[in-house]
Amino acid sequence: MSRLNDENLRVARQILSLYPKKKSALIPLLHLSQEQNGMVTNEAMEHIAELVEVTPAEVLGTCSFYEMFKRHPVGEYQINICHGISCHLLGAEDVLEHAEKSLGVKEGEITKDGKFSFEGVECIAACTEAPCLQVNYRYVNKVDSVEFDQLIADLQSGQKAEIPKHGALAKTRQQIQSEKLAGPAEVENASPPVWLQRNEDGQ
């Protein structure tokens, strides 16, 4: 299902209620869509556009700007292998080459069981821990080919419970008490801004 399902539509409305302007919920709803489908589909972007009252083009513009949002299928575990300068000097290319052999797929492809995909990415800001990678944006540091294979084995056996499947931004959704929800501030005895007063006075 590409549009938000009934359960996630209920969650989406809860998210919308947290913001004074519906458009502010655009990014959280993109995360919700990706959590449901593993990617952000065109149909989902159209649905989100309806919910936040903007055009589908605006949703696409936001979705395409952020690398974390995928508009194509990826594995349950998306592995981003850093090949920035520090990682490159310490063996990232060897890790990338080994990943292709170990998983039996090329960069950007998905394993037959749908569990894994990988790609080389630019610096992920963990240079002191090079070579490093991310699994669904959770860091794994100082990885060589042996540790890569162990990581894959642990993910397959469920021993990496701290790493959720792709699309899950967090294990728990933020809860905000109703009295602390955002909203327009009430200003008492507010005078108009100086520039407006000058315009009204013909200055």
Rank of each mutant, 00 (worst) to 15 (best):
D6Y: 07
R10A: 14
R13P: 02
Y19R: 07
K22N: 15
I27V: 15
L29G: 02
Q34Y: 04
E35M: 10
N37H: 10
M39N: 03
E43H: 08
E46A: 14
L51V: 10
E58Y: 10
V59P: 00
G61R: 15
T62A: 15
C63F: 03
E67V: 05
M68H: 10
M68F: 08
R71V: 03
V74C: 04
G75K: 03
Q78S: 08
N80H: 13
N80Y: 08
I81N: 00
I81A: 00
H83D: 09
C87T: 02
G91L: 00
A92K: 01
D94S: 13
E97P: 00
E100S: 15
G104Q: 07
V105G: 03
G108M: 02
I110V: 15
T111W: 12
K112M: 08
D113W: 09
G114W: 12
C123T: 06
T128V: 13
P131H: 03
L133S: 07
S145W: 00
V146R: 10
E147D: 12
F148D: 00
D149V: 05
I152C: 03
Q159R: 14
I163D: 02
P164Q: 06
H166R: 11
G167H: 03
A168V: 12
K171C: 03
R173W: 08
Q175F: 14
K180T: 02
K180D: 14
L181R: 15
G183M: 02
G183C: 04
P184N: 06
E188H: 08
E188Y: 07
P192K: 09
P193E: 07
G202K: 09
